[in-house]
Write a protein that binds this DNA or RNA. Structure first.
Length: 901
RNA sequence: GCCGAGAUGGCGGAAUCGGUAGACGCAGCGGACUCAAAAUCCGCCGGUGGAAACAUCGUGGGGGUUCGAUUCCCCCUCUCGGCACCA
């Protein structure tokens, strides 16, 4: 054993050993429990950043821990290789996207190997390879034939200068990021996947995902957004033709308070009005300005214009004016809403702005539970109303915003007033009665509605999976036949930035119709990259199968779901929802045979993001040039926030942006390479695991890296000193000294804690801290007896085994030094020895009036009475009670006594 | 705007089911070793008052429940993530 810790030597030796022994190879074995440990695959952006190191270290810790528990572990890795950054790099550097992508994969793969992750590289996938995406195209054709993929118009961001569709990310303050042109909405034909057909199941199955964080289930639930309400129509007549304006509401109890309706700018009534009124036309035009991102739509100023069209209130018969509102979305429901200004904050603001009537129809009454489980369900009206006296009717008289907000509060539900026959009814009774009356007129019914929309998968981009459709003038749109798959994406192209190069390549799009054999045109749109990431985890099980998308090996590795999935919390909704959806689609196509797989991920660990400050400069066109934090010197205020910064290269100031997740687009990723080169992979792994619990977001700072390195050096030295002192005799039969007993007890407590932290809590920082404490206690033992050496040997062996999942290279070396002729690989995780944990006495906290005033030593298992008398006899109790009797005595067994004076 | 999460010493964080706030580490300060430095080892390390014992305040802000609240409830502020074409 070397005297000094040399991480580079230790790590190369360990990795060579693992590679030779095939330690990370995962081979199906039905006789062993499997453990499929999956980390979200990276986009090959160039270099790893700290977020990757964190993600894959967590995965590796769990994979190695489960291997030590005896599980047959598979930990695969691949590349989410299609995407926009490759096209942007192509424009900037004049390199084809494929070349750029494969070069990045090579480099990042080297970095992952250098970190020593126990990945089965035989299963590597890159989604840009035809062997991968051919199956995605194959599934597309099946879904298209079943009607689960269909075509319709969708709205996109259009850059009128570059004549290009832009991603939301490329629209900044309503302008194109390169051209600076004002962005317009444009409708183009797109393919959609019918995820709404699975809305009920995607919602219901969240209940069975008890291995998922509650917050993620809640976010998905809200995203799916099931609401029960009433869909109904306002009849109207235009040019003598009858029509119906359909809307959906969850507040049908307020229907008598409707004072206007609002429709989207793309609604047929809006088009009708625009054709006749130039002012309306101008407003509809104005609504086309700006991008399609919902965050922008939701935060912009609410504007509207009257159409001059009146519809008829379905119950009161009153005329109701139709307005166009820029906040009404055509893609949600019917593209029209009823407006009740007295009882909806947005309608209220709109009515105040345009001087529209406000009619109160709800009064404070009993606070009826809104939605599910209120106990009101199916009410006949008899139980509702204000007669229980819990609240008297208070009318809104002051319609100022502040008074209104105070009254209305947080979605206040009360009792109907000014509503004719519905007066006195509570929420559920009123909704039921209104629905019955609307149904009687054929103008409406109760309806379940989802917020979830169908998934538009068409992208007008080059670097993606081609959509396997052929457009024939005679036969229509046809899926590419199986024998012609894959539709291979040509890789040698030049990217100009204006439109997809595929649309300019006749050799790609000119084809023949598979049905009539005539001339036909191939679809030139590619698929959303979320499609590739929706099923890659299944393909890891059988990456070499060239005659089927998946095979029986999926049944082995994915039985009961993938055992652990680890990835960033930013994927909590879209990626995870799409993956759940695809798994259900594949199940319903029978691809899993008799092994039904309903949900792909049994346990989910959502990693907090590694965030870093962002810095930028604006060029002459106002375009932001992002600067890496490593190139910038920042000035901080006393709260640690960056308040100013300059670029090191020129000393000139740069603008300080927010603290955001490390990303290619904001150029704030920190490359771990320097860290690994200076301290080694184990220090990098230890440091990132010790820095914070995995689900918490972490602002990157390398302060403290040396502490992690110091710890490993110290561990090395401790083992070196112990081993150098010669062989150890077997544990003696004689009882141990109190000190050695204490160390053994702490050792076995630590083993229990570390196993719990790895296995159940998945909190690695506290596991590391516990081992550090154990080594601190080890260092306090000065005893050199044979018994002490035996306890030391036991402790150090256990420490190397406990730390192995986190810092496997150094542990491999230390274990070999501690047990010559043995290797760590194949060793089981240690188990606590119950005998070592036995204690005779424990210390209880003594509180007086809830404040710490001392402690008590009592025998283990002491009864309540003896604890109470010991507490009252204590000096602290005597002093604070001063002879008076305590009012109360609280005894928490094993923890504390609280005397209430 | 909507949905979800977070805020604890100078810093990262701990306190797992309502029971000793600040484990463990970083930085800092003091000391040992050294010709010196590095490395290493030992000690101190939330604020205020006090020589000390100890007292008192203290977990983003305000209120509440409780013998006892970082933890539960209500309101607010700020930060982060997502919002359907970044991945």
């Amino acid at each position: 054993m070397q005297e000094k810790y040399q991480p580079a030597d230790v790590e190369i030796a360990a990795q060579d050993f693992w590679n030779q022994s095939g330690a990370a190879r995962a081979i199906e074995d039905i006789n062993r429990p499997k453990y499929y440990c999956l980390s979200m695959f990276p986009y090959p952006s160039g270099k790893l950043h700290m977020g990757h190191v964190r993600n894959y270290t967590i995965g590796d810790v769990l994979a190695r821990f489960h291997r030590m528990l005896g599980d047959n572990v598979m930990q695969p890795m691949g590349w989410d290789a299609f995407g926009m950054p490759a096209e942007n790099a192509a424009i900037q550097n004049n390199v084809p996207p494929a070349q750029w992508t494969y070069a990045n994969i090579d480099y990042m793969k080297t970095q992952l190997k250098r970190l020593g992750f126990a990945i089965d590289w035989e299963r590597e996938i890159a989604t840009c390879q035809p062997e991968y995406y051919r199956w995605e195209q194959w599934l597309f054709t099946r879904l298209y034939e079943k009607g689960l993929i269909y075509q319709r118009l969708g709205t996109v961001n259009w850059d009128p200068v570059e004549h290009t569709v832009l991603a939301n990310e490329q629209v900044i303050d309503g302008r194109g990021w390169r051209s600076g042109a004002l962005i317009e909405k444009r409708e183009i034909p797109m393919y959609y996947m019918k995820i709404t057909a699975y809305a009920e199941e995607l919602l219901a199955d969240l209940d069975q995902l008890d291995g998922w964080p509650e917050q993620v289930r809640l976010m998905q639930k809200n995203w799916i957004g099931k609401s029960t309400g009433v869909r109904f129509a306002f009849p109207y007549e235009l040019d003598g033709q009858p029509g119906q304006l359909w809307v959906f509401t969850t507040r049908a109890d307020t229907i008598m308070g409707v004072t206007f309706c609002a429709v989207a700018a793309e609604h047929p009534l809006a088009s009708y009005a625009a054709a006749r009124d130039p002012r309306v036309a101008a407003f509809v035009e104005e609504c086309k300005q700006g991008g399609v991102a919902e965050a922008d739509l939701a935060t912009m100023e609410k504007k509207g214009v009257p159409t001059g069209i009146f519809v008829t209130h379905p119950l009161s018969g009153e005329p109701i004016e139709v307005w166009i509102g820029n906040y009404v979305l055509m893609g949600y429901g019917d593209g029209a809403v009823m407006a009740v200004p007295a009882h909806d904050e947005r309608d209220f603001a709109f009515a105040k702005k345009y001087g529209l009537p406000i009619r109160q129809v709800i009064a404070k009454g009993r606070e009826d539970g809104f939605g599910d489980g209120s106990g009101y369900g199916g009410g006949t009206g008899s139980g509702s109303g204000a007669e229980d006296g819990s609240g008297s009717d208070v009318a809104i008289t002051d319609f100022s915003l502040s008074a209104w907000q105070e009254w209305y509060g947080n979605k206040y539900i009360g009792v109907c007033v000014n509503s004719g026959k519905y007066d006195g009814l509570g929420y559920h009774a009123a909704v039921d009665a209104v629905a019955v009356d609307l149904a009687a007129k054929g103008l409406g019914e109760k309806k379940v509605q989802f917020r979830l929309r169908d998934w538009g998968i068409s992208r007008q981009r080059y670097w993606g999976c081609p959509i396997p459709i052929i457009h024939c003038a005679a036969c229509g749109d046809l899926p590419v036949p199986d024998q012609d798959l894959p539709v291979v994406l040509p890789e040698n192209v030049t990217i100009s930035g204006a439109g997809s190069p595929l649309a300019k390549m006749p050799e790609f799009y000119e084809t023949t119709c598979p049905k009539c054999g005539g001339k036909a045109k191939r679809e030139t749109d590619t698929m959303d990259t979320f499609v590739e990431s929706s099923w890659y985890f299944l393909r890891y099980c059988c990456p070499d199968n060239d005659h089927a998308m998946v095979d029986e090996r999926v049944s082995y590795w994915c039985a009961g779901g993938i055992d652990q999935y680890i990835g960033g919390i930013e994927h909590a909704i879209l990626h995870l929802l799409y993956s759940r959806f695809w798994t259900k689609l594949m199940r319903d196509l029978g691809l899993f045979g008799e092994h039904r797989l309903d949900e792909p991920f049994a346990h989910l660990l959502t990693q907090g993001m590694v965030v870093a400050p962002t810095f930028y400069r604006e060029d002459s066109h106002g375009k932001k040039q992002w600067l890496n934090p490593a190139e910038v010197d920042a000035v901080h205020d006393e709260r640690g926030r960056a308040v100013g910064a300059s670029l090191r290269a020129d000393g000139l100031p740069v603008i300080v942006g927010g603290i955001e997740k490390m990303s290619k687009s904001k150029n704030n990723g920190v490359d771990p390479q320097a860290l690994i080169e200076q301290f080694g992979a184990d220090t990098a792994r230890l440091f990132i695991m010790f820095a914070s619990p995995p689900d918490q977001s972490l602002e990157w700072s390398d302060a403290g890296v040396e502490g992690a390195f110091r710890f490993l050096k110290r561990l090395w030295r401790i083992v070196y000193e112990h081993v150098s002192a010669g062989p150890v005799a077997p544990t003696p039969a004689a009882p141990l000294s109190t000190g050695l007993q204490g160390l053994r007890r702490q050792l076995h407590q630590t083993i229990g804690k570390v196993a719990d932290d790895y296995g159940r809590r998945k909190q690695f920082n506290t596991a590391i801290a516990a081992v550090m404490e154990l080594l601190n206690a080890y260092g306090r033992i000065t005893d050199d007896s044979a018994a002490a050496r035996a306890v030391r040997q036991e402790t150090l062996e256990a420490v190397t085994l406990m730390l192995n999942p986190i810092v496997p290279h150094i542990c491999e070396a230390l274990y070999a030094a501690l047990r010559p002729g043995h290797t760590l690989s194949g060793q089981a995780f240690p188990k606590p020895d119950a005998n070592a944990l036995v204690q005779n006495e424990i210390e209880l906290v003594l509180q007086i009036n809830g404040k710490l005033r001392g402690s008590l030593r009592v025998p283990v298992g002491a009864d309540r009475a003896s604890i109470e008398s010991a507490a009252l006899a204590s000096g602290a109790a005597q002093k604070h009670l001063a002879g008076t009797a305590p009012k109360k005595l609280v005894v928490v067994p094993g923890r504390l006594v609280n005397i209430v004076a």
